[in-house]
Simulated scan of single mutants.
Amino acid sequence: MIKAVIFDLDGLLINSEPIWKRVEIDVFSRHGMPVTEEDLMQSVGLRIDEVIMYWAQYFNVEVERDEIQAEVLSKMQEAIIKEGLANKMPGVDEVCAYLQDEQIPMAVASSSHLALIQTAVEVLGLKKYIRVIYSAEFESHGKPHPGVFLAAADYLRVDPLQCLVLEDSVNGMIAAKAARMACIVVPAKDEMDRPEWGLADGVIPSLEGLMELVENLEQ
């Protein structure tokens, strides 16, 4: 039986992946890492510090990680405040209202920094629904390590086996399954047919189709 739901943030609650790509391409290119949108698909779901070092190694350049990270996070904070509400994903309000009516507690557990998660939750108008906000920045490893989800479950005081994770990335799905949690993925349209989703407990094109799947999982 599902007793708690843990949401990812980027690409699930908010269509922020295009914003991340825009910011990363801009900032990284000025630090010797000329990534493309296609390149950045390889680092979706990782923490920003991990993304920076991944591409620094790829391009064989020495970088000031903390400086680049601060620049990216500052630009993302501005963008979320300005563009966040317009990029809320379909079905978010309906799902949160449904879970609240069912008295199922909710958390957001993301690879993004805590300040960004908090800003997004506030801008999207979800603060009234979300009991726990947790960031992988406080873990020794980001996704696909399960730590971020296990910590969120601990703060919710719910057994991981009774948690449902909603994700949109392969790394996030792997993290959820490694935490022994049920996982439903909501991929981008051009990723619906990825074979990796076979590991998930369900695949839906939008959060609007979630309620029926949750009811089936509880049976």
Rank of each mutant, 00 (worst) to 15 (best):
L217F: 07
I6E: 03
N87E: 08
F7G: 06
S110W: 13
S29W: 04
K189L: 07
M33V: 02
E218S: 13
E139Q: 13
P205Q: 00
L164C: 05
E215N: 01
Q69A: 06
K75L: 15
K143S: 04
Y54N: 02
M1E: 10
A136C: 10
L124I: 05
I14P: 00
L199K: 13
V123S: 09
L150P: 06
D66H: 14
K189T: 04
D201V: 06
V121I: 15
E78H: 09
S29D: 09
Q57C: 11
I204D: 10
R157I: 07
P195H: 15
A107L: 01
V61G: 11
K177M: 10
I14M: 15
V72E: 04
L85C: 02
K128E: 15
K143D: 01
E24C: 01
I117A: 09
P18M: 09
Q77R: 11
V148G: 12
I68A: 13
Y134V: 08
E38K: 13
I204S: 07
V123H: 09
H31Y: 12
S74L: 07
V23G: 02
I81Q: 13
K127W: 04
H31T: 09
A56K: 01
P187T: 14
L150G: 06
G198W: 08
I133E: 05
S110C: 04
L13R: 00
Q219N: 15
L156C: 06
A182D: 10
D101I: 01
D193E: 15
L199S: 07
P90F: 12
I25H: 01
V165K: 01
N15S: 12
K128I: 04
M211W: 07
L156K: 11
K21D: 12
Q42R: 15
M1C: 14
F59A: 08
E64V: 12
Y58C: 10
G209L: 05
T36P: 01
V186E: 00
A188L: 10
E167Q: 11
Q69G: 11
P187D: 11
L199C: 00
S206M: 15
V121P: 07
A107T: 02
N171I: 00
A182V: 04
V92K: 00
E208I: 10
C163M: 05
S112P: 05
D190E: 14
V214L: 13
R47T: 11
L210M: 12
A178N: 15
A200Q: 05
L166W: 00
A86W: 02
E50Y: 01
L210D: 04
E64P: 05
F28T: 01
L124G: 08
D193V: 09
R194E: 14
D201T: 04
V165W: 01
I130R: 00
Y134N: 01
L199A: 09
I25R: 10
V123T: 12
M1D: 11
G142D: 03
L164F: 03
M89W: 11
M33H: 03
D49T: 13
M53S: 13
L161Q: 06
V51R: 02
